[in-house]
Amino acid sequence: MIQIDQIQSTAADLMAKAAIEIPQDYLDGLKAAASTEDGDLSSFVLQAMLDNYEAAKEDRRAMCGDTGVPRWFVKLGNEARVEGGMVALEAALRRATAEATTAVPLRPNRVHPLWRTDHNNNVGIGAPEIEYGFEPEGDWVDLITVHKGGLFGTDYRMLFPSDGMQGIKRFYLDSLVAFGKRGLACQPAIIGIGLGGSKDICMTLGKRASTLRVVGSRNSDPRIAEMEEEFKELGNSIGMGAMGFVGKNMVIDCNIEVGYCHTGGMPMSVHAFCLSSRRAVARLWPDGRVEHRTDPDWFTPYQRRESVDWETSVEEFV
């Protein structure tokens, strides 16, 4: 049984870590980008961002004033049990979100869409979002928090099989160019592309591709992995860098996730996880161990399964 107090205190730690500490994989990616950048303004911006990460860690203050909209992904091994059940877990995550908003502090970003009511704690109707995944084995719970910022850099379009790769590339470039101007997308970013699913799942796939996969990871389908490399190159050949200034670095990495869709369509979404790619992860075990990491490791073979029964799939993988 995983203790509920430990879930809440770990969740509070994750809230602060996500806001303050840039994940190492993104940092390495940005340093590599900075070493190739030769635009005078965009180079200055990247160096300022590297200084900013240091300042945030030293001062234990949030790296960006827009601390994003906190959200939770919870993954459970099939044998995991939580004290008080899942309703208690959701209450613990909401409490940790509210308390961290004051303790870090975070910006109280969450308001009612019409009445603009702000509880000053990032909690409200549907906020923070809590999404779930499961794995066939294990008695652990993974808590993943992502605080994606910004109102720009994300778009959806219903494409069709006849649009083909040419249409996919067009929509990808359109999204990067439109939101890259003036740096609205806060690039260079981890670009996530969702292909397929129904409309809502298409958005979910793209968002998870940008926020739940690390820089340098590749899709397990080798042809999609090739597309990821090609699209990263393509985004970086626009000639646009940080803040929309002339430069070489728009995309720190491009991650693509797919889901089966309606036979007539090919829906596509594009998401940008920004210069403050806030994510933090911890695994909690029933014996009280807590292991922190920054790789959500969300897209396991089980999450990408294609077959009816999982057991069959395991044999296929072997």
Binding site: F160, K181, I238
Partner: peptide, 24 residues
């Protein structure tokens, strides 16, 4: 920003070669 946009725009036509507008 508009000054930078204008410089970047010079490359865009070439970049978009091999893509096509969406059917819908």
């Amino acid at each position: 920003f508009e000054r930078e946009n204008a410089k970047i725009a010079e490359n865009l036509e070439h970049l978009y070669e091999g893509t096509k507008p969406a059917v819908l």
